[in-house]
Amino acid sequence: MTAHAASTARALDTRPARPPAMPANVLTIALRELRDAVRSRWFLLYTLAFAALGLGVSYVSALGSGGAGLSGFGRTTAGLVNLVLLVVPLMALTAGAGSIASDRERGILAYLLAQPVSRFEVLLGKYFGLAGALLACLCLGVGACALVLALKGEATRPAAMLWLVGLAFGLSLGMLSLGMLVSVLARRASVAVGTAIFLWLALVFVSDLGLMAGALAFRLRIETLFALATANPLQVFKFWSLHSADATLDVLGPAGLYAVDTFGDHVVWLFTSVLAAWAVVPLAIAAVIFSRRAPV
């Protein structure tokens, strides 16, 4: 107990000349964020809700099909797609919105940024950490559904389940990115989460209902309608899910046929770029704002 500083130094490896490179710090922060996320109440709640609802959908549709064992883009997949559209954006948006804002509110952020880390590392680390938590949530939920369907003798294509997870993850990356932008902008965590919920409502209901009204009232042209709908990552997720199930979008009526005729197989690239843009652009804006804003 006489030479504390010395013993502190002894408990440590020798001090490196420079702080860790970016990937190392991002990984450290991501793992930290992941740990915090999976221990948090929201993660447990969302995972349980997602798995429970998914199991409900699977179970009910397995009952309804009477073991006909026919696969297709049936009610099971449709139900799961619907579920993802409802739950995943909400989950990702609120998780993203809560991340920076609540840390700032609790003083955690200032303390973290006083360490030898850059702000970009913090933002990116949090993003990856939360993305990991969301991925775990999706895997657990959909995996449980797939098991139940297999046990009930429902021949949903295994690939459809993998696509569902992959695409839902793509969607959640976009929503997470948007949520983090909100989080960086908002002064308070409650405001951030409120804004996130508002955005969720806008993306899930308001925009679609608006477009429906537009299609009915203004007789929007098919290409306009498709373009507007494609701007919404939720719709893109849905389109792509359908496309992955059938390699065709004709189920979506004239607008789907328009997409098939216009883009053919390149429609996948269109979808990729829309989802990627949603995942990258808000995060990039968030990074710029975050680097300029005081963390307290």
């Binding site: 657990l140 797939a146 369907l149």
Partner: peptide, 19 residues
């Protein structure tokens, strides 16, 4: 399908394991 389900649960579990 069951295999895919189990694999997905495993991946989810691994991520949780990381945490």
């Amino acid at each position: 399908l069951g295999g895919v389900g189990a694999a997905l649960l495993l991946v989810g579990g691994l991520v949780l394991g990381l945490a």
